[in-house]
Structures are given as structure tokens and as C-alpha cells.
């Protein structure tokens, strides 16, 4: 990668001499995904998630290492392999911009050599499932982001791929559109037993769709396991929220010795999960409580904490 120093003089000297550095986008990533799995790749920006998907779909060639998808080496780009998977990138448009999506679908049918009856059946099924039939004849440039993403997904699934790579498919979408895509993806994946690898920054996507989560930071795998295990493994406490009738007795809260926060009539405590059963009756005894809830730490918070930790400092046994 070319390191471009700031300033005009540096730019001029950069015409004659450039310094560059090697960036290892991915290193030591060892991952096996079984048929029919729905796996989420999580990681901060620049962690290597998209690079990983690009490698698996054969867009780029690694400097070293091996990968097999459906038994094929992706970067050999054989037609047989490319007919069996699809890639959808939330930040890229793959439909013809000035034309209705129906035209792109027609081209897709030719490229993937789809039998007309099968093509029509799959297309109708997918557009009905997403409720986008009326958008088929509208130029893509006139569609909203959510509508466009739905049609991108239809295009990607027309040839009934066995593997689907999704790179931030819900980026920029409103809650309704996100929810709609979640339902659609969950249904299609379950029905087709499709293998899906998803990169996202939204924990709602993960919670709604994936049982397995792989966390990547600095190009290496930091965690690979179930969603539930993340919570168990990386947090030692739960969040207890008390909804009080009157002002909280702060002195008593201090005496309990747990971190707390007061938000109006609410008190939020972080209590060691092994001590919840002992401590909770004591807390409730001294306060006039209208409501109480005990919850896990939000996933976003756990994952953000994970991202902050260095790849090399991963807790023992967190890698598969």
C-alpha cells in the first residue's frame, strides 16, 4: 500500500519516489463453514471481513494460503463454481441503474442459463415474498435504498445459489426494511438449506439470523462460536434495572458495592451474574419498586468491547 504523505511538495516528490508498506488484510484465518449454516462475520471497520468475502468469492487472489468453497478454489474463477454462489454487497449496486430491475433479471437469466419456466417461478416466488412485484418495472435509480436492496437480493437468488455471501446488506436501511430482509433471509435460507456468510455491523441482523458468530479483528479470528456463548464468555455481569416510586437511597446503593447509574426514577446496576440470586432480594427489600428487570449486557456493548481488545489477547480457547 502506497503511503502518501501530506502536502504539495510530498505529492511532487511522490511522483519520483514512493514509500509503501505491506498490509496483511488477513492472516492465519482458519475457518470451516458447514452446509446450511448461517454465519455472521463481525469486526470493526478495516478488520478484513469484506476482504475475506472477496477472497471466498474469487474477486481477489491471496498472496498465500488456501481456500475452498464448494470444493473449488475461488480465485480460479471457474464458471461451474461461480454458478453456485452469489455475492450481495450493501454498498454496491449490481442492477442496471437506468433500467427497471426486470431487465437486469432477464440478463441474469441468460448469464446463468436459467430455464425460462424455472426462472419465472423463482422470480415470482422471491418478489412475492419481499412484496416488490410492483417495483419490477420501475427504473432502479428511482427506487429507495431499501427497495433496491430487496431487488438486489432477488437478483442474487434467481439462480438458487448454494452459498450466499452478504456484505452489510442492511447498511443504511430503516428498521422496517431491516426487519423485512431478516424475515426474508431466514425463510429462504431455511427452505433452501443455503449456506450464508454475512458481514454486518448491526447486532440485530446477527440476533435475527445467525447461530454462529465469527469475530475478526486485525485480519485474525478473535472468536468463533455461538451467539449465546459470546455473552457467557465475555461478560461476567447482568444488568438489573429498578423502576422506583421515589428517589433512590444512594447511600444504600453505594454500600452494595456494584457499579450503578441513576436515570430519573430508574436505577441501573451491573451485578455479578453469580450473585444475582443473593443480592436481588436485598436490593428489593430497601426500595419501593414498581418494576424490575434482569437482562444480559447488550450484544453491541459486548462486541464493541471485543473489538477493542487486541487480536493477540483473545481469551484462551476462544478460537475453534
Amino acid at each position: 500500500m502506497y503511503d502518501k504523505p501530506e502536502g504539495l511538495f510530498s505529492s511532487i516528490s511522490g511522483l519520483f519516489h514512493r514509500t509503501s508498506r505491506v498490509v496483511e488484510a488477513l492472516k492465519g484465518v482458519d475457518l470451516t463453514v458447514e452446509k446450511g449454516e448461517f454465519v455472521a462475520l463481525l469486526g470493526p471497520n478495516g478488520a478484513g471481513k469484506t476482504t475475506f468475502l472477496k477472497l471466498l468469492s474469487g474477486i481477489i487472489t491471496p498472496t498465500r494460503g488456501e481456500a475452498r468453497v464448494l470444493g473449488a478454489v475461488p480465485w480460479q474463477r471457474t464458471d461451474d463454481f461461480r454458478r453456485r454462489f452469489a455475492l450481495v454487497m450493501g454498498q454496491r449496486n449490481q442492477l442496471w441503474w437506468d433500467l427497471p430491475a426486470a431487465e437486469s433479471f432477464r440478463l441474469h437469466k441468460e448469464i446463468y442459463r436459467l430455464e425460462p419456466a424455472r426462472f419465472e417461478r423463482t422470480r415470482d416466488e422471491l418478489v412475492d415474498l419481499l412484496g416488490v412485484r410492483k417495483l419490477l418495472l420501475q427504473p432502479v435509480r428511482d427506487l429507495s435504498l431499501g427497495e433496491r436492496m430487496k431487488l438486489e437480493l432477488v437478483a442474487a437468488l434467481l439462480h438458487e445459489p448454494e452459498v450466499l455471501f452478504l456484505d452489510e446488506p442492511t447498511i443504511g436501511l430503516d428498521v422496517v426494511a431491516q426487519h423485512s430482509l431478516h424475515r426474508f433471509l431466514a425463510k429462504v435460507q431455511a427452505e433452501r438449506q443455503m449456506t450464508v456468510v454475512l458481514t454486518t455491523h448491526y447486532m440485530k441482523d446477527v440476533a435475527a439470523l445467525c447461530k454462529r458468530v465469527v469475530v475478526i479483528t486485525h485480519g485474525s479470528i478473535l472468536y468463533d462460536g455461538s451467539l449465546e456463548q459470546i455473552v457467557d464468555r465475555f461478560t461476567s455481569h447482568k444488568i438489573v434495572t429498578l423502576d422506583l416510586d421515589g428517589p433512590p437511597a444512594e447511600e444504600r446503593l453505594k454500600r452494595l458495592g456494584f457499579p450503578y447509574e441513576i436515570r430519573g426514577p430508574q436505577v441501573i446496576l451491573r451485578i455479578d451474574r453469580t450473585r444475582i440470586a443473593d443480592v436481588l432480594p436485598e436490593i428489593l427489600r430497601g426500595e419501593s419498586v414498581r418494576d424490575v428487570s434482569v437482562e444480559d449486557v447488550p450484544l453491541e456493548e459486548i462486541v464493541a468491547e471485543l473489538f477493542r481488545s487486541e487480536a493477540g489477547q483473545a481469551p484462551a480457547g476462544s478460537q475453534r
Partner: peptide, 15 residues
């Protein structure tokens, strides 16, 4: 420049 070429490279066709 924008990465739009990615979409072409994944299609089962001579690039």
C-alpha cells in the same frame, strides 16, 4: 476505481 468490477468477476462468464 469504485469496485464495481467485483460484481462482474463473480458472474459465470468470461470477464
Amino acid at each position: 476505481r469504485t469496485g464495481g468490477l467485483d460484481g462482474v468477476l463473480v458472474q459465470p462468464l468470461d470477464a
